[in-house]
Nucleic acid binder design. Structure first.
Length: 602
RNA sequence: GGGGCCGUAGUUAAGUUGGUUAUAACGCCGGCCUGUCACGUCGGAGGGCGCGGGUUCGAGUCCCGUCGGCCCCGCCA
């Protein structure tokens, strides 16, 4: 009954047509008749006079219900509530002197309502549609369509739109073709876990959703399409993070007859163009470059945040003959000097010790220099000669604190690399307004996996070795470098690519180093190997993570904030309740039977 | 698979060493109000503390389990 009466309140749109949006009217429009439509943001009902802020995605306009303008329009307006959908016709007028609102784009004017229609009512929303209201993320995700009504969310989606349009604009002007690739494809070994889709006409067989269009874009090159791009959804069934969703979007591109530098140069121009068009920000030209080895040496990570200095120093040689076993027996010893860090309390150092344990560190050695004195739990283990060597090698000064990690290169670099970021954050060394890209090049082609006792492609199995490294691939796989490159922005990997292997012979060799037997390679990648037999041109490409890029550009801290309908950390959608159980009949049609009963949600 | 933080009105939060009837703000409902703009003002309704066990004379507070959200390690070519 209640619902029925509300429906009766609503008016049909009829022949009313919107003439302006809610951020458009200015003093120049004074005197004009207009028709606005939107949602009621705030209602200020003075009894004799009612003010309403009308909202659409562009902004707010104040409309006034005044009995002296139209008694009937005013009389009916007491029922209006926040989020009701309103259409109004009226006259634009300058606000009375002293009543202007400089905080509003349309604050010089207001619209006197002569007639209005209620296009729809609204239940009381679970949270107010205002940026300043703090709401838990789970409530926001359950009512995502309301969250998206809030201007911060809307703005992020607009930035996303502007970025994709700039990308298209740039690439089309550089002779790229926007080409599609299948969403239902086949599962391939290596890489992330696939999302599988059962095939009904082929019981027991499965498609996989693409982790990326990698092979198809290479086949476009074989097909002679020459320059391909696509803004495309990719799927990886791995655990989530703030910057990882099970479905995410890549700006994917591939070019023929080019080498590494041409791809990097073009990609770099595109990113500069996107920042200029979207944020009016000029990025450096050219982007700085670091080799993988240099990045690991100086920053400990292959995605360094170079907005601040604080480099790591290798001190292995300085302590190689020390009596301090922790140092002398370690494969690698590195140090991180924090200027002015001698004021860190014991409690803070304990916190930092706990912090590096996350990355596998056993502990955190440190030395403070205060008034020329070394204060440290480990100083007593070091000879005068070693102290002098460290003081010189690290340029130690008063009020410094220096942290050490000793052990496997992997743990030492990771622990100090992330400690460097943590210290910079705590000390405010990072200019949050700055965008600092950096290319990382000369990655190792292959990495040895201890658990599986075999080589893995660091980038992917289709990446070409550097000139003259072909022999190494078989002889000393760990020594071969790849024609691969990552673009890192403010400590996030936002893109990566490589020159591809374009001869069947080298591709077969790569598969064999990776432990794929001839017949296995033939069955899983036969179509690629076959294609490479038919005149595949040299080609290379790159893909950017659109979500991460837009996250950084909007200052968001999670890609969920730039994805309209994201998943939670457990990969579920709080709005649709996906994933959900399906009927047994659906399973039977697919030839499937569940081994384990699904847990019932609360 | 593992570590950490968190679930209390619609929302955001407070809730003492376990102790009468669980607080507040905003929102919501009703009255008054012709220049407000997060209007003001007076009054009112609304939860039994994510869920399930246990300890206790007594549990939002303690214990166990479980579900859910967030951050991270592993994983993510």
């Amino acid at each position: 009954m209640h619902t029925v009466s509300k429906v009766r309140l609503c008016d049909p749109l009829g022949d009313w047509r919107r003439t302006h949006h809610c951020a458009q009217l200015t003093s120049a429009d004074a005197g004009h008749e207009v028709c606005l439509m939107g949602w009621i943001q705030f209602r200020r009902d003075h009894g004799g006079l009612i003010f309403i802020d009308l909202r659409d995605r562009r902004g707010l306009t104040q409309v006034v219900f005044n009995p002296e303008v139209d008694a009937r329009a005013h009389e009916r307006a007491h029922v209006l509530r926040p989020e009701y959908v309103l259409a109004m016709r009226g006259t634009v007028r300058l606000r009375p002197e002293g009543m202007r609102n400089p905080g509003l784009a349309t604050g010089d004017i207001e619209v006197d309502v002569r007639d209005w229609k209620l296009l729809n009512t609204s239940s009381t929303p679970p949270f107010p549609i205002e940026d300043r209201v703090d709401v838990s993320e789970s409530t926001r995700l359950e009512y995502r369509y309301l969250d998206l009504r809030r201007s911060r969310c809307t703005r992020n989606l607009v930035v996303r739109h502007t970025v994709t349009q700039a990308v298209r604009d740039f690439l089309i002007n550089h002779d790229f073709l926007e080409l599609e690739t299948p969403m239902l494809t086949r599962s391939t070994p290596e890489g992330a876990r696939d999302f599988l889709v059962p095939s009904r006409p082929n019981p027991g067989r499965f498609y996989a959703l693409p982790q990326s269009p990698q092979l198809f874009k290479q086949l476009y090159m074989v097909a002679g399409l020459d320059r391909y791009y696509q803004i495309v959804r990719c799927f990886r069934d791995e655990d989530l993070r703030a910057d990882r969703q099970p479905e995410f979007t890549q700006i994917d591109m591939e070019l023929s007859f080019v080498d590494q530098d041409q791809v990097m140069d073009l990609a770099e121009q595109m990113i500069r163009y996107v920042f200029q068009k979207t944020l009016d920000v000029s990025l450096p030209d050219p982007f700085p470059r670091l080799t993988y080895d240099q990045a690991m040496a100086d920053y400990g990570l292959d995605k360094p945040d170079i907005r601040f200095d604080l480099k790591l120093t290798d001190v292995t040689d300085l302590v190689r003959r020390s009596d301090f076993r922790l140092f002398s027996s370690a494969a690698l010893v590195k140090a991180l000097v924090l200027p002015g860090g001698a004021d860190l309390s014991r409690g803070e150092i304990d916190q930092l010790t706990d912090f590096v344990r996350i990355y596998g560190a056993q502990g955190l050695a440190w030395i403070k220099i205060k008034s020329g004195e070394w204060q440290s739990p480990i100083a007593k283990f070091l000879s005068q000669e070693e102290r002098d060597g460290l003081a010189r090698g690290l340029s130690l000064n008063n009020d410094n604190i220096v942290f050490f990690q000793a052990g496997s290169p992997e743990v030492v670099n990771t622990a100090l690399g992330y400690l460097r970021l943590e210290l910079a954050q705590r000390r405010g060394f990072i200019d949050e307004a700055r965008f600092q890209p950096v290319w990382i090049t000369d990655f190792p082609l292959l990495e040895w996996d201890e658990t599986e006792q075999r080589w893995f492609a660091r980038h992917h199995p289709f990446t070409a070795p550097q000139e003259g490294h072909d022999e190494l691939v078989v002889g000393q796989p760990g020594k071969a470098l790849a024609k691969a490159y990552d673009l890192v922005l403010n400590g996030y990997e936002i893109g990566g690519g490589s020159v591809r292997i374009h001869t069947a012979e080298l591709q077969r060799q790569m598969f064999s180093v990776l432990g794929l037997a001839q017949d296995e390679a033939a069955s899983k990648f036969g179509f690629l190997l076959k294609a490479l037999e038919y005149g595949a041109p040299p080609h290379a490409g790159i893909a950017f993570g659109l979500d991460r890029l837009v996250m950084l550009m909007t200052g968001a801290t999670s890609i969920r904030d730039v994805i309209a309908f994201p998943k939670t950390q457990k990969a579920s959608c709080l709005m649709t309740q996906a994933p959900a159980k399906v009927a047994n009949l659906q399973l039977r049609e697919l030839g499937l039977k569940l081994r384990e009963q699904a847990k019932t949600s609360p």
